[in-house]
Design a protein around this nucleic acid. Structure first.
Length: 488
RNA sequence: CGGGGUGUAGCGCAGCCCGGUUAGCGCAUCUGCUUUGGGAGCAGAGGGUCGCAGGUUCGAAUCCUGCCACCCCGACCA
């Protein structure tokens, strides 16, 4: 049991906060609702970002950058969009400060009021589509496949490190297409990219699905999502991909001349994932000892610890092992701390979630072995020095897939099919997880269920089998099951 | 915005009700010695506008008034 981390059983929420802070991922800042992402946390985010960026480029996208500020009038051009975001916007009203007359410091200069207020972007559809109007004239300009890495601000009333902060980092893809079909294909393609990333890199199994109108992005015709399940049985939306129809093209008057020489509105998509993924990574894999970072995303995949401490006679052996591993592309950290004792270091590296730890001491070298400990199972074994790089590389693969398998087994065992309201409530209050149940398809019923149970429809899974049934709440006819859950 | 709570060393807290030596404790930090294969021990040291501003008093961390900040629970949300 860790000395400084609250156990999951005692207080899951506190466990999460302890982990984020004690493992050096992030910390609270002087600004309410905003966090400081610390170097170790940012290193993980960089690995996620770099991988996603490569995947976006491999699917034909390019990066660009649009302004942080959006004129207020832009936001109101798409009715549903402004409706969705208006209540959480930070607004810039002035551009200058001046010294207070009573000498108490600086105050906002009332003479420096902006003609038009600027909104700190909560998302960039409006500023981007206003720009696209100038970039798109012909079908030859399409498709336009652009992504931006940026920070956005949503003035949330209650925040949680990584999961919901007033400012967060994300990427937002904004694409423009000549046809409806092409835009829908793009929406689905990027959903697949997200699902692949979640499962193959983050080792997090996800359900791909489509949102109900209630949960749809403000301004979208359809919102697709990937939904993940945390260890406390609550769901987390891990990424979204929106088919925006012609809503923004019409709001910003973006038309193009088609091959038939007709003027048509452009079809749009947008898609994004954020630093919220960091929260998912923590909550899916970690335990009471600390983090557990999947090898593919771990800043350090292996740490080599000299036993009992860094010594001249151990050094050449450790350097040789590290070189052999690095030659195979493994990210290795060599522990050079001669102050702390081994037991402390072991606990510390487990807290950081480094997948593999290699202990090297005189005793091991005499036997021609090293002690290899894996973070996920917390088991140790002596491995021969001969061929150690091969052993470690396959061990890392093994850990990556074990983490996924474990998370998937948990997720699969927490998808419960229920057919009565009693079972529905009992499942939510008991094991939690996803509840697969019939729903009559109305927003009213969805709202009613949310009010009574705090559960929302996370998604209608893609390729959902059609199945006649009756709504869990109203008893009205239903054509398919949907996935309910309590969510972050 | 409603309800509750907390502000005392880098962190976590005690002291406040019932005012009175130099404001304590644990962790962390620094120094020294002994240690070192699962979170070391001993000895010593440094570190404080007691959230801010007034007031009562011979005397305020403690009592009174006002203000500020943060946290938790709800409404809102990626």
């Amino acid at each position: 049991m860790s000395k400084e981390i609250t156990s999951r059983a005692d207080d899951y929420s506190q466990w999460y906060i302890d982990l984020v802070r004690k493992a050096g991922l992030a910390d609270y800042s002087a600004v309410k609702g905003c966090m400081v992402i610390k170097p170790y946390g940012f290193a993980i985010w960089e690995n996620m970002r770099d991988t996603l960026d490569r995947m976006f480029k491999d699917t034909g996208h390019v990066n660009a950058y649009f302004p942080l500020f959006i004129p207020k009038s832009f936001l109101s051009k798409e009715a549903a969009h402004v409706e969705g975001f208006a209540k959480e916007c930070a607004v810039v009203t002035h551009y200058r400060l001046k010294n207070a007359e009573d000498g108490s410091g600086v105050v906002v200069d009332p003479d420096a009021r902006l003609e038009e207020e600027l909104i700190v972007r909560p998302t960039s559809e409006t500023i981007i589509w206003n720009t696209y109007r100038d970039w798109i004239q012909s079908y030859r300009d399409l498709p336009l496949l652009i992504n931006q890495w940026a920070n956005v601000v949503r003035w949330e009333m209650r925040t949680r490190l990584f999961l919901r902060t007033a400012e967060f980092l994300w990427q937002e893809g904004h694409t423009a297409h000549a046809t409806r079909e092409e835009a829908i294909d793009e929406t689905r393609k990027m959903l697949d990219v997200y699902a692949t990333f979640a499962e193959e890199w983050m080792a997090i199994p996800v359900v791909k699905g489509v949102k109900t109108p209630n949960e749809r992005f403000a301004g979208a015709e359809d919102t697709y999502c990937i939904e993940a399940l945390m260890q406390d049985g609550k769901a987390l939306q891990a990424g979204t991909s929106h088919f925006l129809g012609q809503n923004f093209a019409k709001a910003f008057d973006v038309q193009f001349s088609s091959k038939d020489n007709t003027l048509e509105y452009v079809w749009a998509t947008s898609w994004g994932v954020s630093t919220r993924l960091m929260g998912a990574l923590v909550m899916v894999h970690s335990d009471d000892e600390g983090l557990m970072i999947p090898p593919k995303l771990a800043p350090h995949q292996v740490v080599i610890v000299p036993i009992p401490k860094p010594l001249a006679e151990l050094d050449p052996h450790i350097t040789a092992i590290a070189a052999e591993l690095r030659a195979r592309g493994v990210r290795v950290k060599i522990d050079t701390d001669d102050q702390s004792r081994p037991g402390f270091k072991f606990a510390e590296y487990e807290k950081l979630g480094i997948p593999v730890r290699i202990a090297v001491g005189a005793r091991d070298l005499a036997n021609g072995t090293v002690e290899v400990a894996r973070r996920d199972t917390r088991t140790k074994e002596n491995m021969p020095l001969e061929g150690i790089a091969d052993s470690i590389v396959s061990l890392l693969d093994n850990i990556q897939s074990s983490l996924f398998d474990r998370a998937k087994a948990y997720r699969d065992s927490h998808i419960t099919r229920v057919d009565t309201w009693e079972e529905f409530v009992a499942t939510l209050d008991g094991p939690g997880g996803f509840v697969s149940a019939h729903w009559d398809g109305t927003s009213e019923t969805e709202d009613l269920i949310k009010e009574e149970t705090k559960a929302t429809i996370r998604c209608i899974p893609l390729d959902n089998p059609q199945e006649a049934g009756t709504c869990i709440r109203t008893g009205k006819p239903s054509t398919q099951r949907v996935l309910f859950a309590r969510a972050y």
